[in-house]
Design a protein around this nucleic acid. Structure first.
Length: 346
DNA sequence: CCTCGGATTCGGAGGTAGGT
DNA sequence: ACCTACCTCCGAATCCGAGG
C-alpha cells in the first residue's frame, strides 16, 4: 500500500507531487518485514510507521533555502488552537537574537505558481514574518498525505500539541477524507488512540473548544468527560454562557476548561444536609449526600433510642431493599442480556 | 437474509509523572 | 508514600459493508 510509505522516496528527490505512489524498494521491504529503525533511535517505531518516521528524519537533512514569507501559505489543515502571546513574543525574541535555527518544511503550492504551502513551522513563519526577514525552509514536493503526515509527526516529535489540538487535527484530517492509516501515521497513535481523539473532537462543539483553547493539562479522560456532560440537555448552552462571563477570557486555557467542566456538571443535591422532622419542632434526622457517601445524622436528644433501633433494624431493611431491587430488575429484563454499564472516572 | 472479515469502539490493566 | 491524571497497549465487543 502506497499510503504506508508516504514519505519514502522524498530523500531521493523523486517525490511525485500528486500521486502518492513514490515508493522505495528498500524502505518498502523494511516496512513489510517490520524491521526496526536502526539509525534514528525512535523508540517503538516499527513497520510502516517506522518507515514514515525514518523518512521524516531524512527530510531534515535536506538543503535549506531562504524564501520570502509573503510567498508562504498555511497548511490546508490547521493543527493548532490559538497560541499564547507570550510564547510568540519569546519566539520572536529568540529568532531576533539567534536567527532562525530550525528551518520549516514547505512544498511548492499545488495550485498557485511561485508560491509555497507550509507543512510545519507555522509559528516560526509568523515570527519571522513579523521580524521582516527571510524564512529558512526546506522545499520539497509533497502529496497532501505526505504533507499532513510530516505536519503531524513534527508536532508529535515535539509533544507540544495538547490532547484537544491533536483531536481537532485528527478530526479535520478525517473530514478532509484522509484514511485512518494516514491519520495514525500523522499523529503517532494506534487505532484506539485515534478513535478516542476523533470522538472527543466530534462530541465537543467546535465553538466551545475554541473558547477553551488548547488546555495543555487536560487529557483524554477529562475531555471525554466534558463531552459526556455536554450531551445532557441544556449543557452546551450553560457552557456557552460560562464562556461569555467577563473573567473567562482572562483565565488560562486550563482554567477555562475547568470553568466549562464545572458549568456543565450535573446538578448536585444541595451541599446543605437535608432535614427530616417527623416530630413538630424537632430535627430528628439530617441527611448529607455527596458523590461517594450518604450520611444520616440522628439527633439523640430529639428521640433517644431511635439510632439504636435503626441500627438493629438494618438487616431487615436491607433484605427488603434487596428483594425490592431484584424484583424491579427482573421486570425490566425480559430475559435479555443486560446492556453493559458505562462508567466514568473523573 | 446470513455470514464473514476488516474497521472501529470500548473497557480496563499497567506504567509514568507530578503534586501533596 | 500516596493520589491523581495521563498515556499506551491489549483484547473483546460492536459496527458495517461486501459477497454468497
Amino acid at each position: 500500500m502506497a499510503r504506508k510509505n508516504l514519505l519514502v522516496g522524498l530523500t531521493a528527490g523523486e517525490a511525485q507531487a500528486a500521486s502518492g505512489h513514490a515508493i522505495s524498494e528498500t524502505a518498502t521491504h523494511a516496512a513489510a518485514a517490520g524491521q526496526p529503525a536502526p539509525h534514528f533511535g525512535v523508540m517503538g517505531t516499527r513497520g510502516a510507521i517506522g518507515a514514515v518516521t525514518r523518512s521524516i528524519e531524512q527530510l531534515k537533512a535536506h538543503a535549506v533555502v531562504e524564501i520570502d514569507c509573503d510567498l508562504v501559505e498555511r497548511s490546508f489543515i490547521t493543527d493548532r488552537l490559538e497560541g499564547s502571546a507570550e510564547d510568540h513574543r519569546s519566539l520572536v525574541a529568540s529568532i531576533r537574537e539567534h536567527g532562525q535555527q530550525v528551518p520549516v518544511l514547505v512544498r511548492p503550492h499545488p495550485a498557485r505558481e511561485g508560491r509555497y504551502q507550509i507543512a510545519y513551522g507555522h509559528r516560526r513563519l509568523r515570527a519571522v514574518a513579523e521580524l521582516g526577514i527571510r524564512l529558512r525552509a526546506m522545499v520539497k514536493p509533497l502529496t497532501d498525505e505526505q504533507l499532513v503526515v510530516a505536519q503531524g509527526q513534527e508536532n508529535s516529535a515535539r509533544t507540544d500539541l495538547s490532547f484537544i489540538e491533536k483531536a481537532l487535527f485528527a478530526a479535520r484530517l478525517e473530514e478532509a477524507g484522509f484514511k485512518r492509516d494516514t491519520l495514525m501515521a500523522a499523529l503517532s497513535v494506534d487505532k484506539t488512540g485515534l478513535s478516542r481523539l476523533i470522538s472527543a473532537a466530534v462530541k465537543v462543539p467546535r465553538d466551545i473548544i475554541a473558547a477553551i483553547g488548547p488546555a495543555p493539562k487536560a487529557g483524554r479522560d477529562r475531555w471525554l468527560a466534558l463531552a459526556e456532560r455536554l450531551e445532557a440537555s441544556g449543557a452546551a448552552e450553560r457552557a456557552r454562557e460560562a464562556s461569555s462571563r467577563p473573567d473567562f477570557a482572562a483565565a488560562s486555557s486550563d482554567d477555562r476548561f475547568l470553568q466549562i467542566l464545572e458549568a456543565v456538571a450535573p446538578k448536585r443535591r444541595s451541599a446543605e444536609p437535608a432535614v427530616w422532622s417527623p416530630i413538630a419542632g424537632k430535627r430528628l434526622l439530617r441527611i448529607k449526600d455527596d458523590a461517594t457517601t450518604l450520611t444520616l445524622m440522628i439527633d439523640k436528644k430529639a428521640e433517644p433510642g431511635f439510632g439504636d433501633y435503626l441500627i438493629g433494624a438494618l438487616p431487615e431493611i436491607y433484605a427488603a431493599f434487596q428483594a425490592g431491587s431484584q424484583g424491579s430488575e427482573r421486570k425490566k429484563d425480559h430475559g435479555r442480556v443486560a446492556e453493559p454499564r458505562k462508567t466514568t472516572k473523573l
